Amino acid sequence: MGYKTNQIGYTKELLSSRAIMKRGNYALIPPDGLVKNVVPNFENCEMTILSTKKLGASFVDYICKVLPNGKNVKGFGDEGIEVFLYVVKGKLSVKTDDTETKELSTGGYVYAPAGVKIYFENTSEEATELFLYKKRYQELEGAKPYTVIGNVNELKSQAYEGMEDVQLVDLLPAEIDFDMNFHILSFAPGASHGYIETHVQEHGALLLSGQGMYNLDNDWVPVQKGDYIFMGAYSLQACYATGRDEPLSYLYSKDCHRDAEI
C-alpha cells in the first residue's frame, strides 16, 4: 500500500508525524503518512479516505488524484446521499444525471442532491486532484435541493463578519432546501477569526494555501497548505494566518438549515 505522497522505503528523518487524532473531537491530517485506498467505481484514481463515522464525522471526505484516463462512469452518489466534487488542481469532464457534460478546471465544483449521481473523466494528459464529499441528506418538508455547478473564481467574495482582511465565498445558495454548504475562507497574513467559535456544526476543511495556527479545542496547532482538518460538533475553533507571501485559505463544509434532532 503506497503513501499519498509516494514516499516509500526508509526515511532519512526520524519517524514522526504532525497528525493528531481525537476521535469525535478534532483531527489534523497532513499529507505525509496518508495511504491510498481502493474505492469501487473509481478507475485509475488514487483515493484517500479522510473523515468518516469512524473518526466521529457525519459525512465522508476524500482526496482523489484522477490520473490521465481516470474516471467514474458508474457514478458518485446514491439514494438518500448528497455529494460534492471540487477541483483542487487540473481539468475534468463532469456530468450528472440531470445535466450535460461540462469541462471543469481548478476551482470548479459540482453539488448533486440525494439520488443524483456525479460522473467524471480526465481526458487531459495531466493528473487532476479532487476533493470529494458525501452525506446523508436530512429531509425537510417542502425542501427540494437541486444540482449546482460553478467555479469559485467566478464567485464574489465578501468580508467575513466585517473584517476586510478575511474573505468568505459561499459555493452553494444560502437556501433552506440545502442542509449543508461549502465555503472558502481566506485570511491575509496576520488576520484571524474575531473570536474562538463554539457551535454544533461539524467541518471538514482542506487547506488550499498558506500557513497558520489553528485553535482546535484550545490546542494551538500549526497548519499549512495540503493539511486536512476535521472539526467535530462543539469543538472550539479559530485560526490566524502566518507566513508571508499568500493567504491562509481553506475549503470547508458546514451542516446548516436544520433543527437539532432529539
Rank of each mutant, 00 (worst) to 15 (best):
residue 89 K to E: 13
residue 112 A to I: 03
residue 66 V to M: 05
residue 233 A to N: 10
residue 40 P to L: 05
residue 40 P to R: 14
residue 103 E to M: 12
residue 88 V to L: 14
residue 206 L to T: 02
residue 86 Y to V: 00
residue 189 P to V: 11
residue 233 A to R: 12
residue 234 Y to S: 09
residue 70 G to C: 03
residue 14 L to R: 13
residue 21 M to Y: 13
residue 174 A to Q: 13
residue 151 N to E: 06
residue 173 P to R: 10
residue 157 S to V: 00
residue 225 K to D: 00
residue 192 S to P: 00
residue 86 Y to K: 05
residue 179 D to E: 06
residue 208 L to N: 05
residue 76 F to E: 01
residue 7 Q to E: 14
residue 122 N to I: 03
residue 55 L to Q: 04
residue 174 A to Y: 01
residue 74 K to E: 11
residue 140 L to T: 15
residue 54 K to R: 13
residue 64 C to A: 13
residue 144 K to R: 14
residue 248 L to P: 06
residue 184 I to Q: 04
residue 258 R to L: 02
residue 33 G to L: 11
residue 23 R to V: 02
residue 118 I to K: 12
residue 212 G to R: 09
residue 214 Y to M: 14
residue 128 T to R: 12
residue 25 N to C: 11
residue 262 I to A: 14
residue 63 I to Q: 14
residue 227 D to Y: 02
residue 163 M to E: 03
residue 199 H to G: 13
residue 183 H to F: 14
residue 69 N to K: 15
residue 104 L to M: 08
residue 166 V to P: 03
residue 148 V to H: 13
residue 220 W to R: 12
residue 54 K to V: 00
residue 158 Q to T: 10
residue 189 P to G: 10
residue 135 K to I: 10
residue 52 T to V: 01
residue 191 A to G: 03
residue 139 E to S: 15
residue 227 D to E: 01
residue 233 A to V: 02
residue 216 L to T: 04
residue 26 Y to W: 09
residue 229 I to Q: 03
residue 165 D to Q: 13
residue 186 S to R: 08
residue 215 N to S: 14
residue 200 V to A: 12
residue 179 D to G: 10
residue 190 G to M: 09
residue 196 I to V: 14
residue 113 P to R: 06
residue 182 F to W: 06
residue 256 C to N: 07
residue 227 D to L: 02
residue 19 A to M: 10
residue 234 Y to V: 01
residue 202 E to N: 06
residue 6 N to S: 07
residue 129 E to M: 09
residue 157 S to L: 02
residue 131 F to T: 00
residue 86 Y to F: 15
residue 87 V to G: 08
residue 245 D to V: 03
residue 113 P to W: 06
residue 84 F to Y: 04
residue 90 G to E: 08
residue 16 S to V: 11
residue 243 G to Y: 07
residue 147 T to E: 02
residue 102 K to L: 09
residue 199 H to W: 08
residue 130 L to K: 03
residue 80 G to S: 11
residue 240 Y to V: 03
residue 70 G to S: 07
residue 262 I to M: 11
residue 195 Y to D: 07
residue 31 P to D: 04
residue 35 V to W: 09
